[in-house]
């Protein structure tokens, strides 16, 4: 059979990806598509790299050796994801060193949820369970990404995330079946994280107006992802006796979840570098990138 030709005009390319077509690094890519891919995938890489910091802070304070080991494994997984993801960005034309420069200078972004403090062990549980749950919904939708090299590494990433989410659930279950103080820590953490969790999938712009969806970089719209999150996880939260801190939250008869409008100004302010821990975490990352320069110099001289 003749080869599938990737169209060489922007309009035909758009139709090709919208019909489910996938492309490789070596194919002709429209400039706008390439630019959007770099922006999207780079932010994902940044988020993996910054996402380890809230949990890293708890490795030494984790309650048991088993928990310390599990957190360490998660941190290794996520840094590994960042490495794979930055490789994909490099093949699209932006070197990893420049991605890291843009990250620590605040030019590029990372996900809102990694700009907040992890106050107690309850926060660690809520992050590991619900933040990862929200993330895996976005990530599963990337398995069908029109850019095939990205879709392929997502297989490994999603597979490892399923371990993370179970680890988070296990932490939460240990606490909700523990003392009233432990249960209280989970509820307080849920109260703190609910806002950022509801903002996580972004504002509900129609999917067809979202350039990332139009190019089929992601395969679902923001609101669709949030509805999926609510549908999957609100019942799991409630069955543990926890309360979701939103009096307006309810599932309508037609299956759609209603909720209090998330604070989009907060989302915008946080992701543009004004979150409660943004500066501190970027400074930490900067210090390590500088401190470890000799490792890269020594290993990559060849």
């Amino acid at each position: 059979m003749a080869a599938v030709e990737v169209p060489r005009s922007e309009q035909a390319f758009l139709e090709y990806v919208q019909a489910g077509g996938q492309v490789e690094t070596t194919d002709w890519l429209p400039d706008d598509y390439r630019a959007k891919l770099v922006k999207f995938i780079e932010m994902h890489g940044n988020s993996e790299l910054m996402g380890v910091l809230p949990e890293r802070e708890w490795i030494l304070r984790a309650p048991t050796l088993q928990r310390k080991l599990a957190l360490t494994a998660k941190v290794q997984d996520e840094v590994g994801h960042a490495q794979l993801i930055y490789r994909v960005v490099e093949d699209l034309g932006k070197p990893r060193a420049r991605c890291l420069d843009d990250l620590i200078s605040g030019t590029s972004k990372f996900h809102n949820v990694f700009h907040y403090p992890t106050k107690t062990w309850g926060d660690v549980g809520v992050i590991a369970w619900l933040v990862d749950a929200a993330a895996i919904i976005s990530q599963k939708a990337l398995l069908k990404c029109s850019y095939a090299p990205y879709a392929r590494i997502m297989k490994k990433i999603c597979w490892e995330e399923s371990f993370h989410i179970l680890h988070g659930r296990d932490v939460i279950l240990a606490m909700v079946t523990g003392t009233p103080e432990q249960f209280g820590l989970v509820q307080e953490a849920l109260d703190r994280w609910w806002g950022p969790l509801m903002q996580f999938h972004g504002n509900p712009i129609p999917a067809d107006d979202d350039p990332m969806f139009r190019w089929r970089i992601k395969s679902q719209g923001n609101e669709e992802a949030r509805q999926q999150f609510l549908d999957g996880y609100v019942p799991q939260i409630l069955e543990l006796g926890l309360t979701v801190p939103d009096p307006k939250l309810r599932k309508r008869d037609d299956g759609v979840w209603e909720y209090t409008e998330p604070d989009w100004d907060e989302l915008k302010s946080v992701v543009t570098g004004h979150g409660p821990r943004t500066a501190e975490r970027l400074a930490f990352r900067r210090r390590f990138i500088e401190q470890e320069q000799w490792v890269r110099d020594a290993l990559l001289v060849a």
Partner: peptide, 12 residues
């Protein structure tokens, strides 16, 4: 095919 890595030689 699962992805790619950057390394100076086969051992690394």
């Amino acid at each position: 095919h699962a992805g790619s890595v950057e390394a100076p030689d086969a051992e690394f």
